[in-house]
Computed example of a mutant assay.
Amino acid sequence: MNIPSDLKYAASHEWLKDDGTVGISDFAQDQLGDVVYVELPEVGREVKAGETVAVVESVKTASDIYSPASGTIVAVNEALGSAPEQVNGEPYGDGWLFKLDVTEEGGDLMDAAAYEAANG
């Protein structure tokens, strides 16, 4: 399982980068299986940590995506509209979901070691 040490992780398997970029973990994309559709939030939307903001659909199931922090959605990964499989191929790269202007991080975020211990 790939767990980059420079990210923070929510128990619900979203990751947060220092610049506000959000995606789902390698563990999460593996559990979902082949991603076939991603419903992204609207730019400009105000969100609270823990709020449902997106949906990732795979051949197996649909999964709600929760915001790991409070803030404003400032960008979404439009490329996922035509290439949702990037969530599987590069969950920490081109498979990112959205970017936040973070006002407050969620209180339950873990570092890589804690996330690995919880999901190892």
Rank of each mutant, 00 (worst) to 15 (best):
I65E: 03
G120Q: 14
S58E: 09
G20N: 05
N2W: 04
A10V: 01
P68H: 04
A118K: 14
V55A: 08
L109S: 08
P68G: 09
G81K: 15
N2Y: 05
Y66S: 05
N119F: 08
K17T: 01
E42S: 14
L97Q: 08
G89T: 11
E90L: 03
G93E: 12
D34I: 09
T103V: 09
E116F: 06
S25F: 07
D111A: 03
D108F: 04
V56E: 12
S67L: 07
T72N: 10
R45Q: 13
Y9I: 14
S82D: 15
L109N: 14
P91Y: 02
A49T: 08
G71K: 00
V74W: 00
M1G: 11
L40C: 12
V53N: 01
D30I: 10
L40S: 13
I24L: 10
G81T: 12
F27G: 02
E14V: 05
A49V: 12
L97E: 07
Y37K: 13
V74M: 03
L32Y: 09
E78R: 09
A54N: 06
A10Y: 06
D19S: 04
V76Q: 11
T52A: 15
V53K: 00
D111M: 07
N77F: 02
G120S: 15
A62L: 07
L80K: 02
A117I: 03
W96R: 00
L32H: 08
D34E: 15
A54T: 05
V55S: 06
V87W: 05
